[in-house]
């Protein structure tokens, strides 16, 4: 018994020292079946759109839709111009303005993108709007929510059928749409995306806006303003933490390309003509 305690103590001591060792993230552990996407793309896209539609309904239910057809038309036009460069032609993008005093924007999977009226009012030009919408579109194109929650289409394969017979289970028993919807709402309204997802969305959003002819620097400008408003505005519930990290990464993206050196449109006048400050 004494010896066993000694060995147990030694094992625990080694375990305590191990966290200091280099981390490899278990990447090599992943097998090819986990790396290569085995999914049925059509069914998965259908599931993504259906899930996004439900989530969009929750967003609208939570904030309310801004009943301003002109404003919504304008946001849709800018958003669709940016979305043309999204690289996911299978999706139809829908943009809407939320009737909220919160400074925020949301993307639901499948192409449903929202921006609050308060956020629009804080913007200075169309390029900022294009970059913010580009950022949200990037959350859609990169399937950040979908990947986080592993939303996939129904598995109607023969293999799944046999597996169900063997185990007495079906895919429905291991995945609850309601639970997934609750978790998605938590990501959007409470916890926010992972910082690496935000950084990726910044980079892709800027490139999409730049490809559409907008000044990509506008995102950084708006984020700086947003940060300032965050201090002033108690209603701020933004899901974009670690601004400094994001700005730093944006600078790296801009420096890596020639976008920073190319003068692009900001279109302040057109923006003010459509957004009533």
């Amino acid at each position: 018994m004494k010896n066993r305690c000694k060995y147990l103590g030694l094992v625990l001591a080694v375990i305590c020292l191990l966290p200091a060792a280099p981390a490899f993230g278990g990447e090599a552990r992943k097998r090819i079946a986990h790396i290569v996407d085995q999914s049925d793309q059509l069914a998965d896209v259908e599931a993504e759109i259906l899930f996004g539609r439900e989530l969009a309904a929750r967003i609208l239910g939570h904030y309310g839709f801004c009943d301003d057809p002109k404003l919504n038309r304008y946001v849709n036009l800018v958003g669709r111009a940016v979305a043309l460069h999204s690289g996911r032609p299978e999706l139809t993008y829908h943009f809407g303005v939320l009737d909220s005093e919160e400074l925020n924007a949301f993307a639901a999977p499948g192409g449903y993108v929202f921006i609050t009226r308060a956020a629009l009012l804080k913007m200075q030009n169309e390029a900022q709007l294009a970059c913010v919408l580009g950022h949200e579109i990037a959350h859609v194109t990169e399937r950040h929510v979908i990947r986080e929650l592993n939303i996939r289409g129904a598995d109607g394969s023969a293999v799944a059928g046999i597996a169900g017979l063997i185990s007495g289970a079906t895919s429905g028993t291991v995945k609850s749409l309601e639970q997934a919807m609750d978790r998605a709402a938590e990501i959007l309204f409470k916890n926010g995306y992972k910082i690496q997802d935000e950084i990726q969305a910044d980079a892709i959003g800027m490139l999409m806006a730049a490809s559409a002819g907008y000044d990509p620097m506008a995102l950084q400008d708006f984020l700086s303003r947003e940060k300032r408003f965050e201090k002033e505005d108690e209603t701020y519930k933004g899901d974009h933490p670690a601004h400094m990290v994001r700005v730093e990464k944006m600078n790296m993206v801009l420096a890596a390309g020639n976008a920073i050196r190319t003068k692009k449109a900001t279109l302040a006048e057109r923006f003010y003509a459509n957004v009533n400050h």
């Binding site: 079946a33 085995q38 999914s39 996939r152 598995d155 394969s157 293999v159 799944a160 597996a163 895919s171």
Partner: peptide
């Protein structure tokens, strides 16, 4: 083992 999407047998 045969893998398919969400399941394998």
């Amino acid at each position: 083992t045969l893998y398919y999407k969400m399941s394998n047998i």
